[in-house]
Nucleic acid binder design. Structure first.
Lengths: 203, 203
DNA sequence: GTCTATAAACCGATAGAC
DNA sequence: GTCTATCGGTTTATAGAC
């Protein structure tokens, strides 16, 4: 609202600051993936971003602030993209499997989720609610898709949509866990084989 | 070999020491389940076992020694029991699902495995090889079982035994992950539904 | 916006008394 | 077998200079 051009925004520093934040988040993703949230130190993150941990504090006042930024980044990178095309029914399942396949090109993303979510089993972890929510939303998304498919006779009659949803989610999580230790696993292909066994139509 | 009765064994101190070790391991299982290996401190473990961390050093000289004892305890408590009855074919699968059901009565065991194995994704974690081995052994066990079943026409023809094995293992791991956040999930029942979809005979 | 310097707390390991 | 005391290292957070 000022008429002067001496504000940070006018001097273009917000854009620079946003760029700096991105660099710090990228470094934090690396470090948290490797060492988890508890053991990944701010000093290591800062070093990889080319600054000191005290300087980083200007962008992220506390470690939890940095974690939240990382989780938000993860969210934007992940399944939300698939949801933008608003698929329904069997196309949700196809998009899901496709998204898992794309994750195989981004080990840091998979490792980040595996490490942080396991840490967040403890109720006092700052990311505890985040992951509980994430899994519930994923389960709800898949349950809606399988329900639609059940109405159209595409899901085997003896299988409840909610059970199918939980199984697909479980298998995805478990396959990614194994893939982190053996990168030769074709997660998307195995997931497709699995899901097809639940259906009456080709996937 | 001594004829005197002044050895520690003769004085019954080995038994006492073994009991103390068990108490310490039980405390370590609690702490490592809650906080992981890196963030779980020896001081906390010692406090729960009713001693100081320096006193604990008499039983476990280093933190890694304690971790190894905890992993060994986990092994003895878990699926190794089921293997003692030496089942083959479909009975291996039944024993596997049954074992998962029993795990639902022991949250500490499931949580310990989830937390420690996620931490051990890092190659420099002292439990890294342990969990890689564990999953490979489990996969081999299940692959043998599904191969036997394939020979007897009990496995759907289009499904490779090794793929079925990996899917059962994955789903087990994923279901237990979800169960840690929502104890109302009947992991054994869902696993049975899932596995039945891969077979040509009732489970 | 980034730095140096430091406070306050905690860690694993260890020496040595009892 | 367990303790107290302590060493050397790490951590997050912070104050204050520039």
């Amino acid at each position: 609202m000022t008429t002067q051009d001496t504000t940070p925004r006018a001097r273009g520093e917000y854009a620079k600051s946003a760029q700096r934040r991105k660099e710090i988040i990228a470094a934090a993703v690396e470090v948290f993936s490797e060492s988890g949230f508890r053991d990944g130190s701010l000093r290591t993150v800062a070093e990889r971003a080319g600054m000191t941990h005290a300087g980083m504090r200007h962008h992220f006042p506390t470690k939890v602030d940095l974690l939240e930024a990382v989780l938000q980044w993860r969210e934007e990178e992940s399944l939300e993209r698939a949801r933008l095309s608003h698929p329904t029914g069997i196309d949700v399942i196809r998009a899901w499997i496709n998204s898992v396949g794309e994750n195989s090109t981004r080990p840091a993303l998979v490792e980040l989720e595996a490490v942080l979510s396991a840490e967040a089993i403890s109720a006092d972890n700052p990311a505890h609610e985040y992951f509980t929510d994430l899994y519930q939303r994923a389960e709800a998304l898949l349950t809606r898709a399988f329900s639609t498919m059940a109405d159209e006779g595409q899901l085997r009659a003896e299988i409840e949509p909610s059970v199918a949803a939980r199984l697909l989610l479980s298998t995805t999580l478990g396959l990614q866990t194994l893939w982190l230790r053996n990168r030769s696993i074709d997660t998307a292909a195995e997931l497709k084989t699995y899901t097809a066994a639940l259906l009456t139509v080709p996937l």
